[in-house]
Amino acid sequence: MPSCADLSEEVRRMLGEFGVEEIPGRLVFRHEAFWLTTAPEIPEKVRVHAVGVRLARVQPHGLKPTSFGLMVLGELVRKRRVEVSREELKELLLGRALRKPGLPEGYVALCLDGEVLGCGEVRGEFLRCQIPLGRRQELLVALAHENKLVL
């Protein structure tokens, strides 16, 4: 297991791959994850559930960016952005893989109309959605309602 300092450097490298030049806050390592926070300290003697927004989880094969983390970074994410159409997004949210040759291998930021929605993953020529299941359902419902609204 790498040290916390090594992991912290790994997070910065990961963010660098996404084109994030300046991290808007500080990184805190807790609960097997890195959190992005502007809080100057963490209260003691009390159970802590979250410190700002979880940015990346430490997994056996390395770091995985979270969807909320990428969403918070938003416009700071300048690389590894993958723009999808509403139809493509619907497919991804339903758990289907999209064939998209030419994308960079690994984790990417899924975008709709230029806005970062969350994490995706490219393996080979296929793009998959890594947004948490509950959030996927909510987005599907929102998109379905919006389709009714489009004039």
Partner: peptide, 12 residues
């Protein structure tokens, strides 16, 4: 998380 608040520490 949805609103992206970074200065918050959530405690129980």
């Amino acid at each position: 998380y949805r609103l992206g608040i970074k200065c918050v520490v959530v405690t129980e």
